[in-house]
């Protein structure tokens, strides 16, 4: 608190999910928690958070970054996407969504994906401010997902990367430059 006052930052009530990629165990309990909450089933492909494992050992939790300028919302031609005023999450109006995919194109991290059965897009809604995925990750003490206050001055958009980009970054970090190259390229 003091720190944020000193450096002149302000904050609102919104939250943000911080990801320590290098810690991810690949337990996928976040996928389970998310799909149970939103779909009432264990359904990895319908989960709004997805663990990508292009390289075993380099598991990447991938979910919406809530970019401050919301390119996905901007791009949507039908008005299916909106920003939730309370949480800052992107809300999807599934009735309006035509699954045109323009939000995926616009997203710097290619985050949105189609629901596996319905004809609409899936984007993290922050569980209305109480993220189930974070709870699952915290209770198992993997410390990969952490809930932090959303800072106005931070550019979350710069953190929005694709699974492939993140895999490269994290693989370099945990395997070393040369070995990462060998396993990915």
């Amino acid at each position: 608190m003091l720190c944020s006052k000193l450096c002149g930052m302000s904050r609102d009530e919104r939250v943000w999910i911080k990801r320590n990629y290098g810690n991810c165990s690949g337990c996928r309990r976040c996928e389970i928690a998310c799909s149970l909450y939103h779909e009432g089933k264990i359904w990895p492909e319908a989960s709004k958070i997805r663990i990508f494992m292009i390289v075993p050992g380099v598991e990447i939790p991938h979910l919406c970054f809530q970019c401050e300028d919301y390119p996905c919302v901007e791009a949507c031609p039908t008005g299916a996407l909106s920003v939730n005023g309370k949480t800052g999450a992107v809300n999807v109006d599934v009735a309006k969504c035509t699954a045109c995919g323009q939000c995926i194109e616009a997203c710097p991290g290619n985050v949105p994906h189609l629901h596996p059965e319905g004809n609409y897009i899936v984007i993290c809604d922050l569980c209305d401010g109480k993220p189930k995925c974070v709870k699952a990750c915290q209770e198992g003490r993997w410390n990969t997902l952490m809930l932090i206050p959303r800072e106005k001055e931070v550019s979350y958009r710069t953190l929005a990367k694709t699974p492939v980009e993140l895999t490269h970054e994290v693989a370099r970090q945990i395997l070393g430059e040369e070995t990462a190259k060998e396993v990915i390229d």
Binding site: G22, S25, G26, C27, R28, G57, G140
Partner: peptide, 12 residues
């Protein structure tokens, strides 16, 4: 330095 596991595993 991370615990490693598979789908649904609490132990990792």
């Amino acid at each position: 330095k991370k615990y490693w596991g598979d789908f649904g595993c609490p132990t990792t």
